[in-house]
Design a protein around this nucleic acid. Structure first.
Lengths: 210, 210
DNA sequence: CTACAATCCGACCGACCGTTCGTAAATATA
DNA sequence: TATATTTACGAACGGTCGGTCGGATTGTAG
């Protein structure tokens, strides 16, 4: 520790940087993220960052991991406490919305931001983000498949389609919520639609039996 | 015209710049857009751009207008040729997907990219983008309301919710399509879901009567 | 205490950014 | 044709960027 006590060495610095970088990345973008910005926000020198990551890109990849870890702890893990089946699938959706509405990250959804940012820019980062999305959809589809296996879906409801549906609602909610004027209207429409679709996809008589 | 014949003066330069800037903005982002990049792509000097727009921000705002004009001509106008009602609402969705799949803009959807880019960055541009989204949702909600007025929706289907739903499908399709590995899977899931939801929201017996 | 590796800093680099300026060419006006 | 205005250019400016380097500071092992 330095004389003024502000700085923390080693591993703790590393995690503090990642935490701060994730926050800033949701605002400025993952690529628009400035190393000086990160360093200044922590009272650390910019050149010191290169002792932990050999380039900006390496830090960016680490930030993606950080975002995934946060997502796991704050969204997925709590949702998995809900019993398997369609309840768990919708719990994931609910947790996702709650996480966003809690404004944990000031710039909204890191993954959505980063994905749109690197849409058309081939490279390691884009591939990693694509992998994240694939993993996420595999996870959602798995949950929907579980629900189908338990016979909790109305006949004719396709599990993959349902998973895609949950994802589309989530993405759209994340996109529109920051729009100040539009937020209340769309939040209302979203809830109405959500109720409707839950009724459409879930067989309530089956759920009541349990 | 200059001696080497490359350059075009006045209004034609202006529109050429906007066209090129829109293309580049979908790739590099609206803020990541570089004036040197635009100028070089057209064989024009960077400083010459300031004869048409007094700052980068002014050009960015003009690019938003350009994007809106393109969207109007390529998506909205053709869809409005379809008879009013639920058919027209879904025609808008279909045209939107078709426009995206035609890869007119290499970086995907300009508005989605720009919206996520400026999510958390207050200012004139963010406000303009928010206004665009509000206008768009008003437009969609109006179409859904028309369909409801014509009695084409199944009982219990909320028009605002339906409009939100069409939007969420569009946003999610635009987001996932560029992900190479995932695209076919999600395109398939999207079509299945789309068919299902059309069946859910539209009363086919009513449509058949016309 | 000594030695060594990890960590951190300030100074500095070249590249690129948006912007300005003086000037020249093209166009509009008379 | 003569004049005024718009449009375009090259050069240069201050500023920020990611990244490098030598040296100082720290924690740890011997």
């Amino acid at each position: 520790m330095t004389q003024d006590g502000r700085l923390i060495r080693g591993e703790r610095t590393r995690s503090a940087v990642l935490e701060q970088a994730l926050v800033l990345a949701t605002v400025s973008g993952l690529d628009g993220l400035s190393l000086s910005q990160v360093a200044d926000a922590l009272g650390v020198s910019k050149s010191g960052l290169f002792a932990h990551w050999r380039s900006k890109e390496a830090l960016q990849l680490a930030v993606i991991d950080q975002a995934r870890a946060q997502w796991r702890d704050r969204v997925i893990r709590p949702a998995l406490e809900v019993p398997a089946g369609v309840r768990r699938l919708w719990a994931v959706h609910d947790r996702r919305i709650a996480f966003y509405e809690a404004r944990v990250l000031p710039g909204g959804c890191f993954f959505a931001n980063a994905h749109f940012e690197f849409n058309a820019r081939p490279g390691v980062i884009r591939d990693r983000l694509a992998g994240e999305l694939t993993d996420w959809m595999t996870f959602l589809t798995g949950l929907a498949g579980e629900a189908a296996g338990l016979g909790e879906l109305r006949p004719g409801v396709d599990p993959a389609g349902l998973a895609y549906h949950v994802e589309s609602l989530g993405v759209c909610a994340v996109m529109q919520a920051p729009v100040v004027g539009a937020a209340p209207t769309y939040a209302q429409a979203r809830r109405q639609l959500l109720e409707h679709l839950r009724a459409v996809t879930i067989d309530p008589t089956i759920l009541e039996q349990k």
